[in-house]
Design a protein around this nucleic acid. Structure first.
Lengths: 274, 274
DNA sequence: CAAATAGTGTCTCTAAGACAATATCAC
DNA sequence: GTGATATTGTCTTAGAGACACTATTTG
């Protein structure tokens, strides 16, 4: 009877079939919209990073950034590496939203993917400039129920509009899951991954998770409120919003200036463990 | 330039290294404790299913049930198949708690694992009897901070006591993560997986998720309260507990009988979408 | 002053926690 | 009646939402 050392020497992993494993990143950013009147606060839009595929399969379709897991890294490190490689921007947060493992989800073969929500601030994206002809673009997001109860996911960048249709699945428990009715031209099962990620983002934003990651180091209360309202697609009263987040932020001595109205105090996120 | 069909014919998956993928299941059950006085309600314990490994590596150590992903199934189907194979019990719920992908987590090589929380009712486990000499046993769980801030995970079944020590990691965001200081004799990184799963279970039990899955179809309010208290390791006032869950349950016409005290009305879980 | 946003005070309503009181069974 | 648990009522307090009001800037 062999001991453990002997066993490990003889162990052959090739005896079992193995899938390729990838990490896909659903990278969110909140963008301020153009504005003609300098005195008005600009509206904000939730956007999502898509990359146009240069090769087969789904050539010329838009897809999530992502790539194959290497043997020397964790799936989180892989996700971080891929998003940095493809955008030169380091996201602030990265949170897993599950493993997508339907055997036929990729026409190339058995390839399963762990999806991540990542949040990037507009500030960081601007620093990295990025030319307009690039194959990586931030798409405006709309995601809502239609009359029949299905979800419509609309992603738009200039004249390009992708419109996917999804049904809510009664999952075994807890997390809601989606089934693709129409992929809207998105590659693979990425419409489903995006819907799942968006649901996770909204669920987290409810108790103010992630919302700070969309903003620079210091920010105004109105900016913070805009982030939450944009993500959740709701609107709340400023007085009540302030009360609720007051425990999570601390004042600075700085104010905004030259906005054509009363200056706003800048706040900083309070250290959670302090 | 090849078209998509041509590309897929020529695509070779073997060009990239691939890991083996497994599903590990953290199966929880709440067990009523023995009682000498028939008039007293019995206390309850949270327990967890472990399997004694028959082969290398970690031969004779206790480990989570689980097994390799097949090419024709999703990871959820794999988890369900494995738990049924190893216990002949079909769990009520199954919820992913993340992918564990440290390259060196398995001495056999590159093997990554998706972990699941699963909940099984004592009723179902009893139906399946299960002989006492089996290599699968339900261990009592204790999980709490010690003075230095580390977490102590104690698993005990008769004279067998496994005691693991873990540190809380400051993770990128949201979910708390654990690092193993002492595995306590558990196989692989299973101490870490168990700690993560237990944290997810507690977090869900806060708003009454999962708690119904531990009980039979009909149950008393006291039983339901016991489930939550046992999971969260807290105690609440009956009046307040009733108020909070009242919207989630509906009455039946049945009562408990012969308990030596006032009979309790039996309730049923209310259909969530109704 | 007008336009526009920043920030405060306070009323109401609901939900959570604490606690007291009553109900019903087996023996 | 006694011991044990089941169930209801209500007081107090904390927080959420609504809304009115005041403050401060630029042109």
């Amino acid at each position: 009877m062999p001991d453990e050392k002997e066993f490990l020497k003889q162990y052959r992993q090739d005896d079992y079939p193995r899938p390729s494993v990838t990490a896909d990143i659903v990278a969110f950013m909140i963008r301020a919209q153009e504005n003609d009147n300098y005195r008005l606060n600009s509206g904000t839009r939730l956007t999502l990073l898509l990359i146009r595929r240069g090769g087969h399969p789904f050539k010329d379709c838009w897809a999530l950034p992502g790539g194959f897991l290497n043997p020397d890294e964790t799936i989180e490190q892989c996700a971080l590496r891929e998003i940095c490689e493809e955008t030169a921007v380091k996201p602030v947060s990265l949170m897993s939203v599950g493993l997508f493992s339907e055997p036929d989800r990729d026409p190339r073969g058995w390839i399963i993917s762990n999806a991540f929500v990542s949040v990037i601030s507009e500030e960081k994206v601007k620093q990295q400039s990025g030319d307009d002809a690039s194959d990586a673009q931030w798409f405006d997001i709309d995601f809502d129920r239609d009359d029949s109860g299905d979800f419509i996911l609309t992603l738009s960048y200039r004249e390009t509009v992708l419109r996917a249709v999804l049904a809510e699945e009664s999952t075994s428990f807890g997390k809601t899951s989606f089934r693709i009715i129409n992929s809207g031209g998105l590659a693979f099962d990425h419409a489903r991954i995006i819907a799942t990620a968006l649901t996770a983002l909204r669920s987290g934003a409810k108790d103010f998770e992630y919302i700070f990651d969309f903003l620079p180091e210091t920010f105004t209360m109105t900016q913070l409120q805009n982030v939450q309202e944009t993500i959740m697609n709701i609107s709340v009263l400023p007085a009540n919003f302030r009360r609720k987040v007051s425990a999570l932020v601390e004042e600075t001595d700085e104010f905004t200036r030259g906005a054509g109205h009363r200056p706003a105090k800048l706040y900083r996120r309070k250290n959670r463990k302090g």
